[in-house]
Structure formats: structure tokens, C-alpha cells
Design a protein around this nucleic acid. Structure first.
Lengths: 200, 200
DNA sequence: GCGTACCTATAAGGTAGATTAAGAAAAAGG
DNA sequence: CCTTTTTCTTAATCTACCTTATAGGTACGC
């Protein structure tokens, strides 16, 4: 039980951390205290443009997308997040300026969240988490760099194949409309790519 | 003087850190001890494909590009770095696997570098630097995310205009061939964009 | 100061991917 | 279960950007 008095399922988060570093009992207790569960229905938003991103979010169950709406009203997916992924607008989280992004649940989902001030406290009290989060951020940066290189050097078909190879579980879970938006092409063009690939 | 016995100009690095957090004399001394100067001539490589990126590099003077060579032999610029920027293949640096990237000096340059093991030692002995580097990485991630969104949502002309607005100093310093490669277009097409923009 | 390598501009023809529209299939929701 | 909404497909037309080629301009290295 955490301070809100409700049972929350923090085990997936503990398991996740322990893949990186073993945790002391005290640390587990602090995590249980600082993280809070939230249930989000399909199509509900975790963050909307103009809001400041005040929480760091870990997905326990379900699926999200983070996207930008451009000046023509088109949506562009920056990232998906499923079980055991983190999601949030890290820029807004740290600058405390309003976000330009939306985070929307693609399925009924369960997340656990930590407030910015609590995360800072965690970093001060337990430098171990500072290190873990630095590593997470580095990994995210490496992924982002790979994606930039792919965007400027590959065709849409190559990007789609690489996406499927890297995330085979997304194939039956995320609609092609959303995948197209992530790849930076129209759903119509993704459809022709898929036809081309199915042929031979 | 550092352990190599040579005078190195570490002041730009100290000034840079102090924009984030004031440093104690002891910390300055440690930085001076752990960072080493390197002079790099134009067209010389700081990193080549297949090498493990063993150093984190801070640019004191000069200009670099980090790029990928694709299977068709074409080069794609991932990043530039000028005075007071960091450069390195952060993926290879942490995984200690061979890099797929090159880092090349576009001008005669001076950098100061820290070895991975020394940086880790720095993080353990002075947690303050762990925090500073986490913030650096977060900032780099935010930039990378912005660039991904731009790549999937903007035309080459919009990306070029944004690049100039964001880095006006690069206009007269970095050749259009290199800028085109960064934007993900051919130099010929960048030339037609420039003509289009010069007209009205 | 000179030669040479590189950089920029311009133009013609070609391709990847966008746009629009319209119908079929599937899924959400009540 | 039926209705409504969303998703996927196909095809025609259109545009952004690539490829190849040619030529003049610029700056580096000696």
C-alpha cells in the first residue's frame, strides 16, 4: 500500500529496475511510496498540448502514442510506449514549459507515475537512481539518433521493414495509420508498400 | 599542468560547466587532471567506423561533423559540433561496441577529451558530474526528438530555414554540401531551395 | 602565386511519396 | 445485434526531391 491507501501494482517497475541494478528493501519502499497508479481509458490523453508535463510515466499495461499536431492539423507520431516503457515529454518535464505534444492511450491502460519533485528527491536521496535514469536517457538518445540517421538515409520501405524487425509485437497491435505516422508517410503509401512486400 | 606535463587550455570547459553549476577548486583540479588536449587537423578523423568510441570529447576550437556511410557509400551527417559542444558516439562509448560512425574535423581544431574509465570515476567520486551529464544527455535527447519530428513533418525548405534560424553562425562556416547532408537532401536540391529563397 | 581539388549553380528527366476520392472490411460502441 | 466510426485498399493525378551532367567559382595545399 502506498500513501494514498490503495493497492498499486508496482512489481513490474521493480522488476524493470532490477534488470539494471539490484534494489535494497528500503529503495523498493521509497519507490512504492513515490509512484502512483493511474488507469487510462482508450483515447484518453495523458498529456495535451499546452500542459506542462509534470510526471514521468511508466507503462504497466496498455499502449500509448506521443505525437505532434502541425500547423496544418496533421498528427505526427514521435514515439509509442507499451509495457515496461517510459513515456513523457522530457523537454517540458525539465523546462516546466508547456508541451507541444500529446500523449494518447491507444488501448485501455495502466501506468504508474512519479511527480517531478519526487523524482528529484529520489535522485538526491538515492544517487543510484540518478545513474539509472542517466543510462535510460542515454539509451533513448541512441535510439533517437538511429532514427534520425534512418530518416535521412533510408526509403520508407526500408524504414518499415526495420520497424517490424525491431518491434515485431507492434505488427498486430498498432494500426497501420499510427505506424505510417511514425514512419513519416501517409497511410495510403504504407498500404502500397505493404502490397509491394506481400507480392513476391 | 596536467599529468602529461603539457599546458592545456581547460578554461573553456570550466566556464562551460560553471554555466550549469559552480565548481569547487578541487573539482577543477580533477577535471584538469582527467581531461587531455588533442589537436586535430582539417580532414582528420577523431573516430572511424569500426573503432570503439573510448573518449568523450569537448570542442575548444574548430568544427566537426559526425556522419554515417550507408551501404551505397553515401555520407549522412548526424551532427555538427563547434566550440563548447560535446561530440562522440554515445552508443559505442557506453556499449563498447565498434561504432558505425565517423567524426571528422571540418577545420583545424582543438579538443579536450576524457577516457570512459575516467569519466566513470568522475561520476562516482563527484556525483555532481553525474547530474550535469544527465542534464546534457536530456538536452541532447530533446534536440534529437525535435529533429525527428521535423524530419517527418516538414519539407526540406522548412528544415533549412529552421536550421539557419537555430544556427545562424553555421551559415558562413559550414559548406552547403555538409548542410544538405545534415538536412537529408542532395546539395543540388539545397541549391535550388536557396535560389527559390533568394528570389522574392 | 599557382594548380588542383572541391564547392556551387543550373537544367533535364526520373522516382518516391502526397493528395484526393471512393469503396470494402473491420472494429467500436451502444 | 445492428449502427457508426474507423481502418485498409486501390487508383489517378500531382509535387518534392533525386540523378546525371556540365560548367564556373572558390579555397586549400604547396
Amino acid at each position: 500500500m502506498n500513501s494514498s491507501g490503495s493497492d498499486i501494482n508496482i512489481k513490474p517497475l521493480l522488476d524493470y529496475f532490477e534488470k539494471y541494478l539490484p534494489l535494497e528493501e528500503e529503495e523498493k519502499g521509497v519507490l512504492e511510496e513515490l509512484f502512483h497508479e493511474k488507469r487510462v481509458r482508450r483515447r484518453q490523453y495523458l498529456l495535451q498540448e499546452g500542459d506542462v508535463c509534470t510526471h514521468n510515466t511508466f507503462v504497466v499495461e496498455g499502449c500509448f502514442r506521443m505525437f505532434l499536431v502541425d500547423e496544418k492539423g496533421k498528427e505526427h507520431n514521435l514515439q509509442f510506449a507499451v509495457e515496461n516503457w517510459w513515456i513523457g515529454d522530457i523537454g517540458s518535464f525539465h523546462s516546466e514549459e508547456p508541451s507541444r505534444l500529446y500523449i494518447e492511450a491507444l488501448e485501455h491502460s495502466v501506468v504508474i507515475q512519479i511527480k517531478k519533485e519526487d523524482q528529484l528527491r529520489l535522485f538526491v536521496d538515492f544517487p543510484k537512481f540518478n545513474r539509472i535514469f542517466r543510462v535510460f536517457t542515454e539509451n533513448a538518445l541512441v535510439s533517437a539518433q538511429r532514427r534520425i540517421l534512418q530518416n535521412i538515409s533510408s526509403t520508407a520501405e526500408e524504414r518499415y521493414l526495420d520497424f517490424l524487425k525491431r518491434h515485431p509485437d507492434f505488427f498486430n497491435r498498432i494500426s497501420n495509420v499510427q505506424i505510417a505516422s511514425y514512419l513519416g508517410v501517409t497511410p495510403e503509401f504504407l498500404s502500397t508498400i505493404r502490397k509491394r512486400l506481400a507480392k513476391p
